[in-house]
Design a protein around this nucleic acid. Structure first.
Lengths: 223, 223
DNA sequence: ACCTGAACACCGTTCAAGT
DNA sequence: ACCTGAACACCGTTCAAGT
């Protein structure tokens, strides 16, 4: 008998929801927010645009599924012996990095109709809030504050990165923002001008975690 | 001489950036996120689609300008004799209501290239943070936490309202969410199930303000 | 059951032509 | 300077026809 090929030849694998979503994520990462097209996706999958509709109801479901996949991947590892505070920081950084890698996820999360990825994030954060010993009546508020801060900053960061692709260096980018802010009209933007200096020596992720800690301090004050 | 018409006849006013943006806001409010079309907008302005391009560079600028107009309108009134805490609550509620009235603003704010409306919100909140006596190094973090929480919850609320247009009654809607959450798999969503009950008797705007106060408590802890 | 790809209705944007 | 509207390139989605 002839030797079997070691790994399956990349021959015509059948189309599947999984393969479609995977290709969609790849296309979104590569070609950006407007790059996901049924025609481009079909070409990449070596088929016609109509074929995709057999596995997926439409573009909305496709985007939802793509966001689902990214968020699920970002939330896998939660160390069992971590304190709630540590676990929250790990979750926060995981989301921050995932959204940085997949900038299209942010806008999608809010629009999602069933918004299951957000519910999952809410659940994960809420468990840690519970473990912190927050009284029942304040648990919703606490988890909500953490989630919205985390997603808001992550989105903002991703949008900035997308808008300033030329400046790949992060410190260079922050320096540029700082310079723009320092030039603002002092009568209209006194505060923003004032914090412009702080921006120059500020590390995104540390700054992000400082915000998480601020909210954790607020939560602690509730006990 | 014939009597003059009391108010100017709505005859062919010349096209202007202002009229275009106004019509765009109206169209977005009426027809929803996908309702803003150059053809529909041109029809409403009794002209051709090409005419709009003389006053506006494209759809992105149009959306930015529309969001700008809404945010500017929401941030006008800040009482001079209010405490910083009160001023922050007023700003927060103003944004909450504005985004509730114009649900398309949320997604737009994040995407905005120059994102000037967000900078303006940041500035307004930051001034109050400064007035609270927060040390310089923590002012950025504090204003950022407030802004992202406020915009996140407001967007979420607007997205929910848009998704559940049939249920106009708010308490009815919350009851529905509560019922769905209570039915979640206890192994996968223990926390969310647990707070489902709290949702039934929860007032959106009060809950929203509770979150603002939580962050204010965190800010106070920094002093 | 699953795929193909032409066809439909619609969109943002351009541009020669008008006033 | 400002407006008109046909035309272009592209999109999501459908569907008769194939295997």
């Amino acid at each position: 008998m002839a030797t079997r090929t070691r790994r399956t030849e990349r021959r015509e694998e059948p189309l599947s929801r999984e393969r479609i979503v995977e290709a969609a994520v790849d296309l979104l990462d590569t070609a950006g927010d407007g790059g996901l097209t049924f025609r481009a996706l079909a070409q990449r999958l070596a088929t016609g645009p109509g074929a995709i509709y057999w596995h997926v109801t439409g573009k909305d479901e496709l985007l939802s599924a793509a966001a689902d996949a990214v968020v699920a991947g970002a939330m896998t590892t939660v160390a069992a012996d971590a304190t709630p505070q540590q676990a929250i920081r790990v979750l926060a950084l995981g989301l921050f990095d995932a959204i940085d890698d997949h900038p299209w996820v942010g806008p999608q999360l809010a629009r999602s109709p069933r918004q299951s990825p957000m519910l999952w994030i809410f659940e994960q954060l809420g468990r840690q809030v519970q473990a912190l010993g927050v009284p029942d009546a304040a648990q919703y508020t606490s988890a909500s504050a953490l989630m919205h801060y985390i997603l808001g900053v992550s989105n903002q960061n991703a949008a900035n990165a997308r808008a300033n692709q030329p400046l790949t260096d992060r410190t260079e980018f922050l320096r540029a923002v700082s310079a723009v802010w320092a030039e603002l009209d002092p009568d209209e933007y006194p505060f923003t001008r004032n914090v412009a200096g702080h921006m120059r020596e500020h590390d995104d992720r540390e700054e992000f975690l400082a915000g998480v800690d601020l909210i954790l301090a607020g939560i602690a004050a509730l006990r």
